[in-house]
């Protein structure tokens, strides 16, 4: 698999606070990379820098040239849906497709409606949708123009289990189709289930980069095969890469 996103020596500080320190990793095509860690570990900051909503203090983020019809390397879906509640699903998609400079916005809207399974709700106002459907539209906007990398900041945090399951199936489908997905989550089970690789951040440092299985192995004994306990034990040990 070729590298879709390359993060090198990324650092970010807000005044005295060092939010990220020397974070480096690669994300490959068709790969889902889960970013986990305790509160304040730097997950959202890392995703924001990858998405381009914040600038890094040091280091770099690079990816392949954007696909045809898109000016973006990285699509982005923030934690809270960034959409207009007074516009319909189709109107939201069409507006952002036009702003993104997509060559054929109407066709792109049709494609995204089909991909998200929201064709029947295309004319519904976004404010009238369930949280799960809103999040699907949120992700769909991030996918406009078919960017090679998709950054998702805690995409399932506000959803019920059924909605979460549907959303992750949808995201898995995107990765299987070739998109590299980098997502942050508080739900360690989701990282284990959907992440091909797991990156563990703690106090701005990347302390682990590997598969969920490798994290289990790296964790101290006593986790009892439970991924969440393994992660907690790993963090408690203060491991460094």
């Amino acid at each position: 698999m070729s590298v879709a996103l390359s993060v090198r020596a990324l650092g970010k500080h807000f005044g005295e606070l060092q939010a990220l320190r020397d974070v480096s990793f690669d994300a490959h095509e068709r790969e889902m990379v889960a970013v986990v860690g305790p509160n304040g570990a730097g997950k959202t900051t890392l995703l924001s820098i990858i998405a381009g909503t914040q600038n890094a203090t040091s280091g770099s983020v690079s990816g392949p040239s954007p696909a045809d019809g898109s000016a973006r390397e990285v699509g982005w879906a923030p934690q809270q849906p960034a959409l207009y509640s007074k516009l319909s699903v189709a109107e939201n998609l069409r507006l952002f497709a036009r702003l993104e400079g997509v060559a054929d916005p109407d066709r792109e809207v049709e494609r995204m409606l089909e991909q998200t399974g929201l064709s029947a709700r295309a004319d519904d106002l976004l404010g009238e949708l369930s949280g799960g459907n809103r999040q699907r539209v949120n992700v769909a906007v991030g996918l406009l123009g078919n960017p090679p990398v998709l950054a998702l900041d805690e995409p399932s945090s506000a959803l019920d289990p059924r909605q979460r399951e549907r959303l992750w199936r949808f995201i898995r489908g995107l990765a299987d189709a070739g998109t590299s997905v980098v997502f942050s989550t508080h739900n360690v089970g989701e990282a284990e289930r959907y992440g091909d690789r797991v990156i563990v951040l703690d106090e701005g440092r990347m302390i682990f980069d590997g598969t969920p299985g490798e994290l289990m192995q790296a964790a101290p004994a006593g986790a009892g095969g439970d991924f969440e306990q393994a992660l907690v034990a790993f963090l408690s040990e203060g491991h460094e890469l």
């Binding site: 909503t53 207009y84 993104e100």
Partner: peptide
């Protein structure tokens, strides 16, 4: 309030 500002202004290139 709609959390759209970051989406509009993120870059490069920024939508607006």
């Amino acid at each position: 309030e709609e959390h759209v500002l970051a989406r509009l202004l993120r870059g490069p290139p920024a939508l607006l």
